[in-house]
């Protein structure tokens, strides 16, 4: 079987996502031919790729980044936003300008604000095993399993705040505790059998929302965020 030609481009992440992809590399090498700047390969060497993985959020104050993302869209039929910054804005959402080291950066957006994204994989960072799973299901063409990631590709913002608004305050929460377990920063604690968000701790990675059975069931049934 021919290997999947994949390009990885980082447009400003903390490197956590990149390390995660690197760690997964030994396990995906047999079916993925990855172009990545850490691999001492000339990236963007091909005209066309089967898949482009983008990590990091788009700084709206950097026109050349926006152009770069748009040019990547031309290179492939499948763009994968990897990590919470690329999918939902993540912690970069807190950028407000005047902050060191780049006071000129005032606003970051997820990739799907600029171009159409095909799959979004949230997580801060998603684990290497997640990279493996994703490629496994992608190569196998398992659309059913990948459906949720397709749905997230159209969502620009997802966080603990959305979880509280959409699921808890609407009364749909069943109190299973999935969100509490999923939060990487322990921003959620169960109080009276319902999650409570400690606002300062939420890094807007969206993992809780993605893991909420109620939320993910409704999204995969065609519900809209």
């Amino acid at each position: 079987m021919e290997k999947l030609k994949v390009l990885h481009v980082d447009i400003g992440s903390c490197e956590g996502c990149n390390v995660s992809i690197l760690r997964a590399l030994p396990k995906i090498q047999e079916f993925v031919d990855l172009d990545m700047k850490y691999l001492a390969k000339k990236t963007c060497a091909r005209d066309k790729y089967d898949m482009v993985i983008i990590t990091g959020g788009v700084c709206m104050n950097e026109p050349h980044i926006i152009e770069k993302v748009k040019s990547l869209r031309e290179k492939t039929s499948t763009i994968v936003a990897f990590g919470s910054c690329a999918t939902f804005g993540g912690i970069l959402r807190f950028c407000r300008g005047g902050q060191e080291p780049r006071p000129d950066h005032r606003n970051f957006q997820p990739i799907n604000s600029v171009v159409k994204v095909d799959y979004s994989i949230p997580g801060c960072p998603p684990t290497p095993q997640m990279v493996q799973s994703f490629f496994k299901f992608f190569v196998a063409g398992d659309k059913k399993r990948l459906k949720l990631f397709k749905v997230y590709a159209d969502i620009k913002k997802l966080s603990g705040f959305d979880l509280i608004d959409d699921i808890v305050l609407t009364g749909l929460c069943i109190g299973c505790g999935a969100c509490e377990l999923s939060c990487p920063t322990q921003a959620i604690e169960m109080i009276d059998r319902r999650p409570n968000l400690i606002a300062e701790k939420c890094i807007r990675c969206g993992t809780c929302y993605v893991r909420c059975p109620r939320a993910s069931q409704m999204l995969s049934m065609g519900g809209r965020k």
Binding site: P126, M130, F134, C176, T207, R211, R214, S216, Q217
Partner: peptide
């Protein structure tokens, strides 16, 4: 609902 959560965690380990 719990099956969904745990199976998603097993298939897609985000954390």
């Amino acid at each position: 609902c719990q099956a969904q959560f745990f199976a998603q965690m097993r298939d897609f380990p985000l954390l």
